[in-house]
């Protein structure tokens, strides 16, 4: 039985001026897979997932999302963005709109849904992330953990097939990390295809199907969590794991 490949990266290269930030990236993501990407800062992990929804543009290689190739063609970019959701480290909620309006914005203006329908969808996702009572508040009135959960609901409201997470808990106080990770674990259980850049190794062990270690722009190692944590092949992976797992 062939599983559908939803994301394909082939020989992807990217430069910032002279700096070679992504080097020959090859990656295949199957439908329903959860992939956790880790590595030292500056290794290109955020850049790689930001290339997938064209927040960054790659110069060489091929990126295909759900059968659509990612090129300069604006129509393709729009199509891909409608089906790929992204959660940012800094939440990036819209401060001048209420929580509910943040979530209904894209369904109303991009999917052209009637307001009532959009609000129903929004409330259902707010309940899913367990903060329906915050609907009329403004982002500034919520805690960090609550804001990030709203951000997740906002992306989910567009009904994406793929969710990208760029260090979603790195800006949170320790006591709020769990509530966000719980939402992400639930999402994973429901079968969402997820690419997560994170340092939360506990989460990785629970949820990941594949672990990817990136360093200096390359994918150094890709393996199942068991192989990755117990028996890393590369020395660099071993070094990185020893640094982050021992404090």
């Amino acid at each position: 039985m062939s599983v559908e490949q939803v994301i394909q990266l082939e020989k992807v290269n990217k430069w910032y001026d002279d700096f070679h930030v992504l080097k020959d990236i090859d990656l295949v993501v199957d439908k329903g897979q959860k992939i956790v990407i880790c590595g030292p800062s500056g290794s290109g992990k955020s850049t790689m997932i930001r290339c997938i929804n064209r927040l960054e543009a790659h110069q060489e290689g091929k990126i295909v999302v759900h059968g659509t190739e990612l090129t300069n063609d604006l129509k393709n970019i729009d199509l891909i963005r409608k089906n790929v959701g992204m959660v940012f480290q800094q939440f990036n909620l819209f401060p001048h709109l209420t929580v509910l309006e943040n979530i209904t914005l894209a369904p109303i203006w991009v999917k052209k849904l009637p307001k009532k329908e959009a609000e129903e969808i929004a409330m259902s996702y707010l309940e899913k992330v367990k903060i329906p009572e915050q609907a009329e508040k403004f982002p500034g009135q919520l805690s960090g953990g609550q804001q990030q959960r709203v951000a997740i609901a906002r992306s989910l409201a567009m009904n994406p097939d793929i969710m990208l997470f760029d260090e979603p808990t790195s800006a949170l106080d320790p006591e709020m990390i769990k509530e966000v990770l719980d939402v992400m674990i639930q999402l994973a259980d429901e079968g969402m295809t997820m690419l997560v850049v994170t340092h939360e190794m506990g989460f990785a062990k629970t949820v990941a199907d594949q672990m990817i270690f990136m360093d200096e722009g390359r994918i150094v190692e890709q393996a199942t969590p068991e192989e990755f944590f117990d028996n890393p092949k590369s020395d660099r992976t071993k070094l990185f794991l020893s640094q982050i797992l021992n404090h």
């Binding site: 430069w15 001026d17 110069q59 060489e60 290689g61 091929k62 190739e69 090129t71």
Partner: peptide, 14 residues
Amino acid sequence: MSNTTFQTIQHSKQ
């Protein structure tokens, strides 16, 4: 749609 849509030559900075 293939690889040839992308430059394999690096253009000069200018």
